[in-house]
């Protein structure tokens, strides 16, 4: 209602301000916020409001017609696709950047790497004691995000391929996962790459970032080496999406273009994500989405 009043006031003064409403992924919210702040400096005729809440929250709001752009760290699920189809909504995916999902443990677990099968076994609840993986004996304590998180869904669908163990502690945000892992000697959790390094790029104290052995290979790939990410060797790389209903037009299009400009990419990189060139490994995600008839 206040936005309405504000618009009315501005309309009276003869200046037209267009409002864009963006909502969704907590993983993306900081980066998109910075992009929007910079964009609003460049174009004073637009006002952009951004909130988090999780990918599912953003997609639900987009489908219900409440927002213009949904940030999402996952693709649409079958229920959402079905809902869009029934209501004649054409959802168009855009790729903001790529994010690496990082597996962290408490240092006293003593492991340096895991392969994909071990990782899935841990989070699905097959392994309850670290001894089974050749580490120091002690209970495994699983940390993850809540089910409204795109990270939760990505990890479940792409790494586990089945349900999480019901003993997974579902934390409110990534910062909470890191805090919990730091304090729990048997802890393992998954977080976004942007959260495991200090602003100066050095790894955070009190947690250990694990290397991951891709399926069918023998050596572990660490996400802390930039080449492993840019060349697509690290197995837990995922695209960060933004969805619109129909092709983006006008100011929304201009904002999306700004995100992929040289300046936009610098901001994205500053948040710990990888800017994406068209035609690299991540665009595969778009094609897959297209194939599913989005």
């Amino acid at each position: 209602m206040w936005t309405g009043l504000l618009l009315l006031l501005l309309a009276c003064t003869g200046r037209r301000v267009e409002t864009l409403v963006i909502k969704g992924s907590d993983t993306e919210v900081n980066a998109v916020l910075q992009l929007a702040e910079r964009y609003m400096e460049l174009d004073s005729a637009v006002s952009i409001s951004i909130t988090g809440g999780g990918s599912g929250v953003g997609i639900a709001a987009l489908l219900n017609g409440k927002i213009h752009l949904a940030n999402s760290s996952r693709e649409l699920n079958s229920h959402e696709l079905q809902y869009a189809e029934q209501h004649g909504l054409r959802i168009v995916p855009h790729i903001l950047a790529a994010d690496a999902l990082v597996i962290i443990t408490h240092p006293s677990v003593g492991l340096d790497s895991l392969d994909m099968t071990q990782l899935a076994g841990l989070f699905a609840g097959d392994v309850s004691d670290w001894q089974a993986l050749g580490a120091r004996s002690g209970p495994v304590s699983l940390y993850g995000r809540q089910s409204n998180s795109g990270t939760f869904m990505y990890f479940r669908d792409k790494v586990l391929g089945r349900d999480f163990s019901p003993t997974l502690k579902q934390m409110n945000g990534t910062a909470q996962i890191i805090e919990a892992v730091r304090n729990d000697p048997g802890a393992i959790g998954y977080v976004g790459l942007g959260y495991v390094t200090e602003p100066d790029g050095s790894p955070r104290q009190g947690i250990r970032v694990l290397g991951i052995v891709p399926a069918g290979q023998t050596s572990a790939i660490s996400p802390l080496h930039r080449d492993n990410l840019t060349q697509g060797r690290y197995p837990l790389l995922r695209p960060l999406y933004q969805f619109t209903i129909g092709e983006a037009q006008g100011r929304l299009r201009a904002f999306l273009d700004f995100e992929q400009s040289a300046e936009g990419r610098r901001i994205i990189e500053g948040n710990g994500y990888l800017p994406v060139e068209k035609g690299t490994f991540v665009t595969k995600g778009v094609d897959e989405v297209d194939k599913r008839g989005l």
């Binding site: 599912g56 229920h79 409204n148």
Partner: peptide, 8 residues
């Protein structure tokens, strides 16, 4: 946790 994410 779940109300916000669930399609109506």
């Amino acid at each position: 946790i779940e109300m916000g994410e669930t399609p109506q």
